[in-house]
């Protein structure tokens, strides 16, 4: 289990959780996020991503665990952000569609 970092934010229009991918796009699936193993590189990516004012709100660096299927939440708060609330099957856990691409509308 390796420690890493992901860049995350909320999408401006829908308000839901998104992550930065290796190609610079945004994804709604944590497992598709780019993982930074260096805190400095994560901070540099955060600085670049934070300028995407028209798409994102509240960018920050979150800790992640590296697993065989990609990044996983390191903290339970990030776990809820990646999954949705525990009292109803709403949010990400209900979104079974394969299209995780984030667009403005």
């Amino acid at each position: 289990m390796t420690q890493g970092f992901v860049i995350t934010a909320n999408a401006l229009i829908k308000g839901d959780v998104v992550w930065l991918t290796p190609t610079g796009t945004l994804t709604r699936k944590l497992e598709e996020a780019e993982v930074f193993t260096s805190r400095d590189r994560a901070e540099a990516a955060l600085a670049a991503t934070s300028t995407r004012n028209a798409e994102l709100v509240g960018c920050y660096v979150a800790d992640a665990r590296l697993t065989s299927v990609g990044p996983a939440p390191a903290h339970f708060r990030e776990g809820f952000r990646a999954r949705g609330p525990s009292n109803y099957p709403h949010g990400k856990q209900a979104e079974t569609g394969t299209d995780s691409h984030v667009s403005l509308y």
């Binding site: 909320n10 401006l12 229009i13 829908k14 308000g15 839901d16 959780v17 004012n53 028209a54 709100v57 509240g58 708060r77 809820f80 952000r81 949705g84 609330p85 709403h90 949010g91 990400k92 403005l104």
Partner: peptide, 28 residues
């Protein structure tokens, strides 16, 4: 104006809060 980029989030946030709109974990 927030959506067309005229307002930054820092400018928009107090305006939306005065109208009861928060941004929470999963959504507004």
């Amino acid at each position: 104006r927030r959506i067309d980029g005229s307002l930054t989030e820092e400018e928009f946030r107090p305006l939306r809060l005065m109208n009861g709109l928060y941004l929470q974990l999963h959504a507004y």
